[in-house]
Protein backbone atom coordinates (compact mmCIF):
# COMPACT_ATOMS: atom_id res chain seq x y z
CA UNK A 1 0.00 0.00 0.00
CA UNK A 2 2.43 2.64 1.23
CA UNK A 3 6.12 1.94 1.12
CA UNK A 4 8.92 4.21 2.14
CA UNK A 5 12.47 3.48 1.07
CA UNK A 6 15.63 5.14 2.31
CA UNK A 7 13.83 8.41 3.03
CA UNK A 8 16.24 11.16 4.04
CA UNK A 9 15.55 14.78 4.90
CA UNK A 10 18.20 17.38 5.49
CA UNK A 11 17.00 20.91 6.29
CA UNK A 12 18.63 23.97 4.78
CA UNK A 13 20.23 24.64 8.14
CA UNK A 14 22.10 21.35 7.76
CA UNK A 15 20.11 19.43 10.38
CA UNK A 16 19.57 15.86 9.38
CA UNK A 17 15.96 15.20 10.36
CA UNK A 18 15.48 11.76 8.78
CA UNK A 19 18.17 9.18 8.13
CA UNK A 20 17.50 6.39 5.72
CA UNK A 21 13.99 5.58 6.93
CA UNK A 22 12.33 2.55 5.36
CA UNK A 23 9.08 0.72 6.11
CA UNK A 24 5.87 -0.23 4.42
CA UNK A 25 2.27 -0.31 5.53
CA UNK A 26 -0.56 -2.62 4.53
CA UNK A 27 -4.15 -1.68 3.79
CA UNK A 28 -6.11 -1.09 6.99
CA UNK A 29 -3.09 -0.99 9.26
CA UNK A 30 -2.93 1.71 11.91
CA UNK A 31 0.64 2.59 12.74
CA UNK A 32 1.66 4.59 15.77
CA UNK A 33 4.80 6.63 15.27
CA UNK A 34 6.44 7.29 18.64
CA UNK A 35 9.65 8.95 19.73
CA UNK A 36 11.00 11.88 21.70
CA UNK A 37 10.29 15.41 20.47
CA UNK A 38 12.65 16.38 17.68
CA UNK A 39 12.99 12.79 16.53
CA UNK A 40 11.58 13.70 13.11
CA UNK A 41 8.05 12.27 13.49
CA UNK A 42 6.37 15.38 12.19
CA UNK A 43 8.89 15.74 9.36
CA UNK A 44 8.30 12.14 8.34
CA UNK A 45 4.57 12.40 7.89
CA UNK A 46 4.87 15.81 6.21
CA UNK A 47 7.30 14.31 3.71
CA UNK A 48 4.62 11.85 2.66
CA UNK A 49 2.28 14.55 1.30
CA UNK A 50 5.23 16.84 0.62
CA UNK A 51 4.32 19.68 2.90
CA UNK A 52 8.02 19.17 3.57
CA UNK A 53 10.14 18.30 0.54
CA UNK A 54 12.18 15.13 1.11
CA UNK A 55 15.88 15.26 0.24
CA UNK A 56 16.28 11.71 -0.98
CA UNK A 57 14.49 8.38 -1.04
CA UNK A 58 11.25 7.00 -2.42
CA UNK A 59 7.70 7.18 -1.08
CA UNK A 60 5.29 4.98 -2.98
CA UNK A 61 1.54 5.06 -2.54
CA UNK A 62 -0.07 2.42 -4.75
CA UNK A 63 3.09 2.43 -6.87
CA UNK A 64 3.21 6.18 -7.48
CA UNK A 65 6.51 7.68 -6.40
CA UNK A 66 5.43 10.81 -4.57
CA UNK A 67 8.74 12.77 -4.50
CA UNK A 68 8.92 12.63 -8.31
CA UNK A 69 5.48 14.19 -8.92
CA UNK A 70 5.07 17.55 -10.65
CA UNK A 71 2.90 20.32 -9.20
CA UNK A 72 -0.41 19.26 -10.76
CA UNK A 73 0.14 15.59 -10.09
CA UNK A 74 1.07 16.43 -6.51
CA UNK A 75 -2.33 18.10 -6.02
CA UNK A 76 -4.07 15.01 -7.30
CA UNK A 77 -1.97 12.91 -4.97
CA UNK A 78 -2.59 15.15 -1.97
CA UNK A 79 -6.35 14.76 -2.25
CA UNK A 80 -5.84 11.02 -1.83
CA UNK A 81 -4.06 11.58 1.48
CA UNK A 82 -6.06 12.91 4.42
CA UNK A 83 -4.32 14.74 7.23
CA UNK A 84 -5.31 15.48 10.81
CA UNK A 85 -3.36 18.02 12.85
CA UNK A 86 -2.24 18.70 16.38
CA UNK A 87 -3.83 22.14 16.71
CA UNK A 88 -6.73 21.05 14.48
CA UNK A 89 -5.66 23.53 11.76
CA UNK A 90 -9.27 24.29 10.91
CA UNK A 91 -9.96 27.51 9.10
CA UNK A 92 -11.24 29.18 12.24
CA UNK A 93 -13.51 31.74 10.65
CA UNK A 94 -15.27 29.36 8.29
CA UNK A 95 -18.24 27.29 9.39
CA UNK A 96 -17.98 23.64 10.33
CA UNK A 97 -19.63 22.65 7.05
CA UNK A 98 -17.26 24.77 4.97
CA UNK A 99 -14.32 23.22 6.76
CA UNK A 100 -15.56 19.72 6.03
CA UNK A 101 -16.34 20.60 2.41
CA UNK A 102 -12.85 22.02 2.03
CA UNK A 103 -11.82 18.37 1.92
CA UNK A 104 -13.27 18.35 -1.62
CA UNK A 105 -11.12 21.25 -2.85
CA UNK A 106 -8.79 18.97 -4.77
CA UNK A 107 -11.78 17.62 -6.73
CA UNK A 108 -13.81 20.71 -7.60
CA UNK A 109 -13.16 23.72 -9.80
CA UNK A 110 -12.19 27.07 -8.35
CA UNK A 111 -15.51 28.73 -9.22
CA UNK A 112 -17.48 25.97 -7.61
CA UNK A 113 -15.45 26.24 -4.45
CA UNK A 114 -15.61 30.03 -4.50
CA UNK A 115 -19.39 30.07 -4.73
CA UNK A 116 -19.65 27.18 -2.23
CA UNK A 117 -21.91 25.31 -4.67
CA UNK A 118 -20.77 21.77 -4.03
CA UNK A 119 -22.36 18.75 -5.65
CA UNK A 120 -25.22 17.36 -3.60
CA UNK A 121 -23.36 14.09 -3.10
CA UNK A 122 -20.43 15.96 -1.52
CA UNK A 123 -22.85 17.75 0.79
CA UNK A 124 -24.58 14.46 1.64
CA UNK A 125 -21.25 12.90 2.41
CA UNK A 126 -20.33 15.83 4.65
CA UNK A 127 -23.63 15.56 6.53
CA UNK A 128 -23.02 11.84 6.93
CA UNK A 129 -19.52 12.35 8.27
CA UNK A 130 -20.61 15.08 10.67
CA UNK A 131 -23.23 12.68 11.98
CA UNK A 132 -20.61 9.96 12.31
CA UNK A 133 -18.34 12.18 14.40
CA UNK A 134 -21.31 13.47 16.40
CA UNK A 135 -21.50 17.07 15.24
CA UNK A 136 -24.82 17.15 13.40
CA UNK A 137 -26.03 20.02 15.56
CA UNK A 138 -23.09 22.28 14.80
CA UNK A 139 -23.15 22.38 10.99
CA UNK A 140 -23.39 26.16 10.57
CA UNK A 141 -21.39 27.16 13.61
CA UNK A 142 -18.07 28.82 13.05
CA UNK A 143 -15.12 26.56 13.81
CA UNK A 144 -13.78 28.89 16.49
CA UNK A 145 -16.98 28.47 18.50
CA UNK A 146 -16.24 24.80 19.14
CA UNK A 147 -14.32 23.09 21.95
CA UNK A 148 -11.00 21.36 21.31
CA UNK A 149 -12.47 17.87 21.05
CA UNK A 150 -15.21 19.07 18.71
CA UNK A 151 -12.71 20.84 16.51
CA UNK A 152 -10.63 17.72 16.18
CA UNK A 153 -13.79 15.87 15.12
CA UNK A 154 -14.28 18.44 12.38
CA UNK A 155 -10.66 17.84 11.38
CA UNK A 156 -11.37 14.12 11.13
CA UNK A 157 -14.48 14.73 9.03
CA UNK A 158 -12.52 17.04 6.72
CA UNK A 159 -9.85 14.41 6.17
CA UNK A 160 -12.45 11.74 5.42
CA UNK A 161 -14.38 14.02 3.06
CA UNK A 162 -11.34 13.69 0.79
CA UNK A 163 -12.08 9.97 0.27
CA UNK A 164 -8.50 9.30 1.29
CA UNK A 165 -6.48 6.17 0.68
CA UNK A 166 -4.15 7.03 3.52
CA UNK A 167 -4.55 9.02 6.71
CA UNK A 168 -1.71 11.04 8.22
CA UNK A 169 -2.35 12.05 11.78
CA UNK A 170 -0.04 14.51 13.53
CA UNK A 171 -0.30 14.41 17.35
CA UNK A 172 -4.10 14.35 17.35
CA UNK A 173 -4.36 14.48 21.13
CA UNK A 174 -1.57 16.86 22.14
CA UNK A 175 -3.96 19.75 22.80
CA UNK A 176 -6.70 17.68 24.44
CA UNK A 177 -7.43 16.47 27.95
CA UNK A 178 -6.89 12.74 28.71
CA UNK A 179 -10.53 11.69 28.42
CA UNK A 180 -11.12 13.49 25.13
CA UNK A 181 -7.78 12.16 23.90
CA UNK A 182 -8.97 8.59 24.32
CA UNK A 183 -12.28 9.36 22.61
CA UNK A 184 -10.53 10.93 19.64
CA UNK A 185 -8.01 8.10 19.31
CA UNK A 186 -10.82 5.54 19.50
CA UNK A 187 -12.79 7.43 16.84
CA UNK A 188 -9.84 7.64 14.45
CA UNK A 189 -8.98 3.96 14.84
CA UNK A 190 -12.61 2.83 14.49
CA UNK A 191 -13.02 4.84 11.32
CA UNK A 192 -9.82 3.40 9.90
CA UNK A 193 -11.16 -0.08 10.52
CA UNK A 194 -14.56 0.72 9.03
CA UNK A 195 -12.93 1.96 5.83
CA UNK A 196 -10.00 -0.42 5.80
CA UNK A 197 -7.91 2.74 5.76
CA UNK A 198 -4.20 2.72 6.61
CA UNK A 199 -3.01 5.46 8.94
CA UNK A 200 0.18 6.80 10.43
CA UNK A 201 -0.37 8.46 13.77
CA UNK A 202 2.32 10.58 15.40
CA UNK A 203 1.82 10.28 19.07
CA UNK A 204 3.92 11.15 22.08
CA UNK A 205 1.74 9.27 24.57
CA UNK A 206 3.04 5.70 24.57
CA UNK A 207 0.22 4.25 26.69
CA UNK A 208 -2.39 5.74 24.40
CA UNK A 209 -0.60 4.33 21.37
CA UNK A 210 -0.38 0.87 22.89
CA UNK A 211 -4.09 0.97 23.63
CA UNK A 212 -5.21 1.57 20.04
CA UNK A 213 -2.70 0.92 17.26
CA UNK A 214 -1.83 -2.27 15.36
CA UNK A 215 1.84 -1.56 14.99
CA UNK A 216 4.38 0.77 16.54
CA UNK A 217 7.36 2.40 14.85
CA UNK A 218 9.87 4.05 17.16
CA UNK A 219 11.88 6.94 15.80
CA UNK A 220 14.98 8.38 17.47
CA UNK A 221 17.08 11.15 15.95
CA UNK A 222 15.64 10.45 12.50
CA UNK A 223 16.23 6.70 12.56
CA UNK A 224 13.84 3.79 12.98
CA UNK A 225 14.91 1.95 16.15
CA UNK A 226 11.79 -0.15 16.74
CA UNK A 227 9.18 -1.68 14.48
CA UNK A 228 6.70 -4.24 15.74
CA UNK A 229 3.37 -4.93 17.44
CA UNK A 230 2.58 -2.90 20.56
CA UNK A 231 2.89 -6.00 22.74
CA UNK A 232 6.60 -6.19 21.97
CA UNK A 233 7.13 -2.67 23.18
CA UNK A 234 8.89 -3.58 26.40
CA UNK A 235 11.15 -1.74 28.80
CA UNK A 236 14.26 -2.37 26.67
CA UNK A 237 12.63 -1.13 23.48
CA UNK A 238 11.32 2.01 25.12
CA UNK A 239 14.69 2.73 26.63
CA UNK A 240 16.14 2.44 23.15
CA UNK A 241 13.63 4.90 21.78
CA UNK A 242 13.54 7.48 24.52
CA UNK A 243 16.85 7.00 26.33
CA UNK A 244 17.20 5.70 29.88
CA UNK A 245 16.49 8.87 31.77
CA UNK A 246 13.56 10.22 29.77
CA UNK A 247 11.77 6.93 29.73
CA UNK A 248 12.01 6.60 33.49
CA UNK A 249 10.66 10.12 33.85
CA UNK A 250 7.76 9.41 31.52
CA UNK A 251 6.87 6.21 33.28
CA UNK A 252 6.97 7.88 36.65
CA UNK A 253 4.63 10.62 35.43
CA UNK A 254 2.30 8.00 33.99
CA UNK A 255 2.36 5.97 37.21
CA UNK A 256 1.57 9.06 39.23
CA UNK A 257 -1.34 9.87 36.96
CA UNK A 258 -2.62 6.32 37.29
CA UNK A 259 -2.12 6.49 41.06
CA UNK A 260 -4.06 9.76 41.19
CA UNK A 261 -6.84 8.18 39.17
CA UNK A 262 -7.08 5.13 41.40
CA UNK A 263 -6.85 7.31 44.51
CA UNK A 264 -9.73 9.36 43.21
CA UNK A 265 -11.70 6.23 42.45
CA UNK A 266 -10.99 4.84 45.92
CA UNK A 267 -11.98 8.13 47.48
CA UNK A 268 -15.20 8.18 45.52
CA UNK A 269 -15.98 4.59 46.50
CA UNK A 270 -15.34 5.35 50.17
CA UNK A 271 -17.49 8.42 49.92
CA UNK A 272 -20.34 6.46 48.40
CA UNK A 273 -20.02 3.85 51.12
CA UNK A 274 -20.17 6.52 53.78
CA UNK A 275 -23.22 8.09 52.14
CA UNK A 276 -24.83 4.68 51.99
CA UNK A 277 -23.96 4.17 55.65
CA UNK A 278 -25.62 7.42 56.72
CA UNK A 279 -28.74 6.45 54.89
Amino acid sequence: MLSIEALTKRYKTGDLALKDVSFSIERGQVVGLIGPSGAGKSTLIRCINRLVEPTAGAIRLSDVDIPKLGRTQLKTMRRRIGMIYQEYALVERLTVMENVLSGRLGYVSFWRSLSRRYAQKDVDKAFGLLERVGLSDHVDKRADELSGGQRQRVGIARALEQDPELLLVDEPTASLDPKTSRQIMRLICEICREHDLPAIINIHDVMLAQMFVDRVIGLTAGEVVFDGPPAELDHAALTRIYGEEDWREMRKAADEAAQDASDAAAFKAAEEERMAGTV
Binding site: A89, R93, E98, S102, L105, L114
Partner: peptide, 25 residues
Amino acid sequence: ESQVEAVQATGASRAQVIDYGIVPQ
Protein backbone atom coordinates in the same frame (compact mmCIF):
# COMPACT_ATOMS: atom_id res chain seq x y z
CA GLU B 1 0.12 29.19 8.50
CA SER B 2 -1.14 25.87 9.86
CA GLN B 3 -4.62 26.62 8.50
CA VAL B 4 -3.12 27.35 5.10
CA GLU B 5 -1.07 24.16 5.26
CA ALA B 6 -4.16 22.13 6.04
CA VAL B 7 -5.97 23.52 3.00
CA GLN B 8 -2.93 22.83 0.83
CA ALA B 9 -2.82 19.27 2.07
CA THR B 10 -6.31 18.60 0.70
CA GLY B 11 -4.89 19.07 -2.80
CA ALA B 12 -6.33 22.56 -3.27
CA SER B 13 -5.07 24.81 -6.05
CA ARG B 14 -3.36 28.13 -5.36
CA ALA B 15 -6.55 30.13 -5.87
CA GLN B 16 -8.47 27.77 -3.60
CA VAL B 17 -5.83 28.07 -0.89
CA ILE B 18 -6.27 31.85 -1.00
CA ASP B 19 -10.07 31.55 -0.92
CA TYR B 20 -10.26 29.01 1.93
CA GLY B 21 -7.03 29.44 3.85
CA ILE B 22 -6.22 33.14 3.67
CA VAL B 23 -9.32 35.21 2.88
CA PRO B 24 -11.33 34.09 5.91
CA GLN B 25 -8.40 34.93 8.16
